[in-house]
Write a protein that binds this DNA or RNA. Sequence first.
DNA 1: AGCAACGCCTGATAGC
DNA 2: TGCTATCAGGCGTTGC
Length: 274
Amino acid sequence: MPELPEVEVIRRDLLARVVGHIIESAKISEARLTRRRGTPDGVGQALGGRAVRALRRRGKLLVFDLAGGESLLVRLGMTGQLRWAAVGDTFRPDVHTHAQIIFASGGVLYYRDVRKFGEMFLLPTAEVDRAMRTGREPLDPALRAEDLFRLCRETRMRIKALLLNQTKLAGIGNIYADEALFRAGIRPTRRARTLTRADAARLLRGLRAVLEAGIRHRGSSISDYRDASGSPGRFVRFHRVYHRHGQPCPRCGAPIRRIQLGQRSTHYCRICQH
DNA sequence: AGCAACGCCTGATAGC
DNA sequence: TGCTATCAGGCGTTGC
């Protein structure tokens, strides 16, 4: 399940291969991919002959800025994978491979997605932020603890729901929300507006620590996540609560609990988190 | 208007 | 063995 760290790893893997390079042709073979905007053939044909000027990340979204003022947006959803195949690479598309972007260099960027929750479409570059309603970037140094505190004060949501809300903070999913709340000692069920300034400061530190560690270890591969070369990430072995229900808390030894919160499984320690 | 629940989608796994 | 039920959760839509 790709969240901010996984998407950032893929972005860095692809940078040198696509930025400054020209797309020769592209083929999209699954209509669901373009359901938000355009058609598979329309998007595929529009990509042909375009140069990639930049590759950015906004939250969990990958943004390929193209020559001519449009951007290709790729969202991986739950099981989406972007796979780079250089000339001579052994990777071969299968029934779950729904798009291929062929570069003039001979390299191919494949999009593979078993559950088809992901999407791929074009937007004018200037409209990306407004159209996607993406919130603040947790790793942006301009985001201060005071900003997070204010976000907490202006809602009645539980703190975990706020972390998962992409229009407020961008890029945090179920894994990194649970891990950050554990590091900050904050219970996921707490109403966000009950957090103090000190809580918000600890939460921002916890978020940044866990997101940066996730990037350093090349992401969390629970089941489907793979980087652009097809390799899994190593961060799962450093998870302290996620998917560790019943196992001892690494801080106090009490069993990690799993509850349902807003239709999602949520993991925490009832001793260490308040 | 804000917030919680639902549905999309498929493969892995549990239970009978 | 083989069938069915359940679970995984990002996110747009629906409904309270």
